[in-house]
């Protein structure tokens, strides 16, 4: 029992697929596929742009902190030099120089951390870039295929139309009708010929009979027939 239902389901499924197949336009489906891919690519590009922008910002901040660290070191040295020249007190210079060195270390640490983050972000950029390149290449390939497919579909549609027309002409019986007509005409011709032959046979039989009857009878000329008529009328 279950087998019957399963078979019925399969039949229904096959019919449904067949119906859907009728509505499916391969070109339109492919165009939709390309549109979807473009949408995917666009959002991937936007993500890549965001990640890249963060990477650029991190690199710039890392660079700024490196410069800041170098600047603090330069300032610390300047303070010590000034103290050496006696322009400021050594203790004060050392205190400020120590502060400057602390700030230098902070900036250097920040630069190091930012550089590490920038490197990690760069790896992410490369990964996303690879995806973007792959999607772009797929998309270009599909667009080229679509152009070819469109041309092929047009040719197929035209061929289908011609073949259908040809097959319709044959099956509608135009050719067989012509054949039938030809046959009918030939039959009519044959019939006409047969009637002709029969008629010819009848004529010759009558002719033979008349000839046999008239055999030996004197042949009257036209003048003689005129004289005979006048005589009958009493005109002579």
């Amino acid at each position: 029992m279950a087998g019957i239902f399963q078979r019925l389901f399969k039949v229904g499924q096959a019919e449904a697929h067949s119906l859907i197949d009728k509505f499916e336009d391969p070109i339109k489906l492919m165009e939709q596929g390309i549109r979807d891919l473009k949408k995917d690519l666009q959002s991937t590009l936007t993500s890549l742009a965001e990640v890249k922008a963060i990477q650029i910002r991190l690199s710039k901040e890392a660079e700024d902190n490196k410069k800041r660290a170098a600047d603090y070191e330069r300032k610390a040295m300047l303070l010590l030099e000034k103290a050496k020249k006696g322009e400021i007190e050594m203790a004060e210079a050392e205190r400020l120089a120590t502060e400057a060195l602390n700030l230098r270390d902070q900036a250097a640490d920040k630069a190091k951390s930012l550089t590490e983050q920038a490197i990690a972000q760069q790896k992410m950029v490369e990964k996303l870039q690879a995806n973007v390149d792959k999607l772009k290449s797929q998309l270009s390939q599909h667009e080229n295929e679509l152009i070819t497919l469109k041309a092929r579909a047009k040719t197929a549609a035209a061929t289908k139309k011609i073949n259908k027309r040809l097959s319709t002409i044959d099956s509608s019986g135009t050719l067989s009708m012509i054949e039938k007509m030809k046959q009918k005409i030939e039959e009519d011709e044959a019939l006409a010929q047969a009637y002709g032959e029969i008629a010819a046979v009848d004529v010759s039989v009558d002719k033979e009979i008349d000839e046999a009857i008239n055999k030996g009878a004197p042949s009257i000329s036209a003048d003689e027939r005129l004289m005979e008529l006048k005589k009958k009328m009493g005109l002579t």
């Binding site: 473009k38 949408k39 690519l41 666009q42 590009l45 772009k136 998309l139 270009s140 667009e143």
Partner: peptide
């Protein structure tokens, strides 16, 4: 209207 990533960039 979205941008075409192959033509508009």
């Amino acid at each position: 209207k979205g941008i075409d990533p192959l033509k508009d960039l």
